[in-house]
């Protein structure tokens, strides 16, 4: 049970994909979570539902619609071609787009819950001390919502590592570009190379367990700290 160079490449590609996707998710997800946590706009319900959709939809559905909409006849495909970027399916950038959509609820929801838990009072108090909205957001809301950001980062990253259906649909199985670890495992199983599948699968199981165990240990410590403070 040893990993081949192709297996290592697939693992490395998976880590790159998960890192880039998590970064993009934090940048896009934070303002979205803030808006969802604070707004009373009638669009809040529909937008929250859209964010949660990937939880419910099978990845094959998401991947199929991505393949069509990112393709040369789809709206996004025509946009990216018009911008001179070319077509996204079968590229690393295409996988990032797919992963961001697929992992969106895992990043937005923990941050949104954390912002809601912060509530109005600390922000009002900061406002009476003449802190501007920007200042209140960065020096009050974000530090108080730190546990939410930790959860969002770990869950977004781990969920992207575990992604399979979407990548399968839009990836095209290109080495070092779209052949991630989960697809490589599927290949091994289909080719009846069960030993190789075991080795790579074991790496993923150990990694996922370690990531989640770290998260829940950190969370427990954080709640203890909060109790200590109050």
């Amino acid at each position: 049970m040893t990993l081949s160079p192709a297996d290592w490449n697939a693992l490395w590609l998976t880590l790159r994909l998960a890192s880039v996707s998590t970064l993009v998710l934090l940048v896009l997800g934070t303002p979205l979570a803030w808006w969802l946590a604070r707004t009373r706009h009638w669009l809040k319900g529909p937008v929250a539902a859209l964010v949660a959709l990937p939880l419910v939809l099978p990845p094959s559905v998401l991947g199929f619609y991505l393949l069509i909409s990112l393709g040369p006849n789809g709206p996004i495909g025509q946009l990216t071609q018009g911008l001179g970027i070319g077509l996204l399916p079968f590229t690393f950038a295409g996988l990032v787009v797919g992963s961001v959509l697929y992992s969106l609820p895992f990043v937005v929801q923990p941050i949104q819950n954390a912002f809601q838990a912060v509530g109005d009072r600390p922000l009002d108090a900061a406002a009476t001390l003449r802190a501007g909205p920007w200042d209140r957001f960065w020096t009050v809301a974000v530090p108080l919502a730190k546990p939410g950001f930790i959860s969002a980062t770990v869950l977004g990253f781990a969920h992207t590592v575990g992604e399979f259906g979407v990548v399968l649909m839009i990836g095209g199985n290109i080495p070092d570009e779209t052949r991630v670890a989960s697809v490589q495992i599927y290949d091994h199983v289909e080719a009846l190379a069960y030993d190789q599948a075991h080795a790579l699968a074991a790496v993923l199981v150990v990694f996922s367990f370690a990531a989640l165990a770290t998260l829940y240990t950190l969370q427990r410590r954080n709640t203890h700290l909060n109790w200590g403070r109050s």
Partner: peptide
């Protein structure tokens, strides 16, 4: 089947 799909969708 997936190979057919890649061509059918124009990708």
């Amino acid at each position: 089947a997936q190979t057919h799909q890649f061509v059918a969708t124009g990708n």
